[in-house]
Nucleic acid binder design. Sequence first.
RNA 1: GAAUCAUGCC
Length: 232
Amino acid sequence: IVIETALLNMYGKCGNLEKGRAIFDRMLNRNMYSWNAMLTAYAQHGYGEEVFELFELMKQQCIRPDRITFATILTACAALATLTTGRIIHATVIESGVCLDNVVGSAVVNMYSKCGSLEDAFRIFYTHEMNLAAWNAMIIAFSDNGYQKEALHLFRWMDLKGMDADEVTFVGILSVCANLADSVEGIWIHRRIVDRGMEFNYSVGNALVNMYSKCGNLEDAHYIFDKLHERN
RNA sequence: GAAUCAUGCC
């Protein structure tokens, strides 16, 4: 079963969904890894229909979705940007008793944001104990929906709480500064990045270059660009 | 202990 799932995953990741599905169908026994791998294969290649068909099949066979199943399906909803389906899945999550303090929390926040309901995203975020990924998802949610200032406020709040930002946080918040062309905030965040020793992280470095460029500070953009390439 | 997995940029 481990070998079969690994194979199925390999074909799925490579985009050979027919072959992956053939292996899945031929398996005599399947566990959560197998179901989730098949769902992920469809989800990561934009086959929303198939994701939901397979999810239905799970229900028919009385297989209880786990948090990874839900995270995968919510990501599919986000990609399809269909709010009604998203709400139904969210209801299913609540029904199943899976908590939102793990991978599912950020997936729910992200789903609501991508489906255009910033209100729901924030309501869920605000009423649950959320991990760093969910904070990141919420910052990006504000930014994507046109609330750059609110995204900055959330970042400041994180900072005050003493939460450690990661690569995703910094890339996201730097894009907010770039959108606003706000170099004062950008410089402050740059300092935070240096504090964390993440200035040579490739993604963060690129985001810094982009931020300084959008703020019209080509000198610093160029300086960081050079430093990045010396280092990498 | 690397068979499945969420949040960002390209």
